[in-house]
Simulated assay, not measured.
Amino acid sequence: MQLTIKIITFTSIIISTILVSSSNSWLLAWLSLELNTMAILPLISKTKHPRAIEATTKYFLTQATASCLLLLSSTINAWLTGTWSITQMSNQLPSTIMLIALTMKMGTVPTHFWLPEVMQGTTLKTALLISTWQKIAPIILMYSTSNHTPPNIVLTMGLLSSSFGGWAGMNQTQLRKTLAYSSIANMGWTLLTLTTEPKTSLINIFTYIIITIPVFFLMALTSTKTLQDMTTTWTTSPTASTVLAILLLSTAGLPPLTGFMPKLLILEELVTQSLTPAAITATTASLLSLVFYLRIMYLTTLLNPPCSSTSTTKWRQNTRGTLSIGLTPTAATTLIALPTLLL
């Protein structure tokens, strides 16, 4: 892909997200989401592989369906209230349709089936973009309409997403699919407190984004795509292998790492709202996610020398400076943010 096309594409993605975050009209938000969708399609299909074309088609059809539902919801709301304002979603019907449209764009249960296939069919950098930046615009819209969102539906979708994300991730051997189901599980945690304490939901999703960025950077740095590749990560970079293991523990939400902070806040809010059964269910579902996080960490760290490796050793590769520059601050923030807050 030429440099000019890359600049135009990334500029369109950034501007569209900023427009969605700052808009007060559903029409402007819808147009910005369409611009965002059209801008990322060339990035998904740039590898010229049938799997990439399939992923592009699935992404386009899913996002187009979600945009149609969003436009339908905003039109019904404008018909009922006489305004296109985002904050005026007082009727339950358009609020429910809007919730389905936004969760479809983010990839949560029951509209999650496109996310693992799309992330598996594209490159690591594009998969990073889909699992992090592409979630900002929908979550901002959900935050803006959180006062009118049906709480029972949101809570049910959150519990289903956290449970299914952990359950389905245990059977995966491809790291991109594993991280896709991890994204689904973390989106479930975000939805749990969206109606009662939306600021906590924002803390959770942005913490997840900060943790996910160095994970993808390390995978790209070590050319790691499968669980079998994890067994020989130490031959490429022992330091990257150790940091990746700690990042996975942080994603799982183990104290005292950063990933534990938003989960603790969410559980505290659920108990405060007398939703203790939901808190217990979410905690149990997080144990399912912990299984595949620990499996990846085991393959990363416990098979280092002098232990035996289960696959052929890779040649040591030269580290790329651009990835290292982006990796250092994000990994440091992921590892030390919670201890700093506790002090």
Rank of each mutant, 00 (worst) to 15 (best):
E269T: 15
I210N: 09
S237T: 03
L247H: 06
L155M: 01
N204M: 10
A185F: 03
G169M: 01
T173D: 07
T226Q: 00
M219P: 04
K199V: 10
Y293S: 04
S163K: 13
N171R: 14
T222P: 04
E197V: 11
P214G: 00
T276Q: 00
T283C: 08
G253R: 03
T251R: 12
P214M: 00
G169R: 02
A185G: 10
S161H: 10
L191P: 06
L159R: 00
M157C: 09
I280N: 13
A245S: 09
V291H: 10
T233G: 15
T226C: 02
Y293D: 05
L254G: 05
L248P: 07
I296W: 02
L194R: 04
L179M: 01
T258L: 02
P256R: 01
L254C: 06
F217C: 12
A245T: 05
F292A: 03
S163M: 07
T236M: 12
T276R: 01
E197H: 11
I184S: 05
E268P: 14
T173V: 13
T232Y: 04
L264H: 12
L191K: 02
L257Q: 13
M219G: 03
M219A: 02
A278I: 03
I280Y: 07
S274N: 14
T284P: 08
T272Q: 13
T284N: 02
T196I: 15
L244P: 15
K199M: 08
P198L: 00
L267C: 09
P255N: 01
F206M: 11
F206S: 13
T190H: 13
L247V: 15
T173G: 13
I296D: 01
T236S: 09
G253C: 04
L275S: 05
F206T: 09
S286D: 01
V243R: 05
Y181R: 01
L227F: 14
K199F: 08
L155V: 03
A220L: 14
K263H: 05
L290P: 12
N186K: 08
A245E: 15
S163V: 11
R295A: 07
T207C: 14
T239W: 09
P277M: 02
T251D: 13
F164W: 12
A279M: 00
A180R: 03
T156H: 13
T190M: 11
L287E: 04
A282V: 11
S250E: 02
L179R: 00
V215G: 02
N204T: 09
Q273I: 10
S182W: 09
E197W: 14
T284V: 14
S250N: 04
N171G: 11
L175F: 01
S250L: 08
I213Y: 03
F206K: 15
L218I: 06
L179V: 00
I209D: 07
A285Q: 05
T231E: 06
L265T: 14
A180S: 12
S182L: 14
L264P: 09
A185L: 08
G169H: 02
I213R: 01
F216M: 06
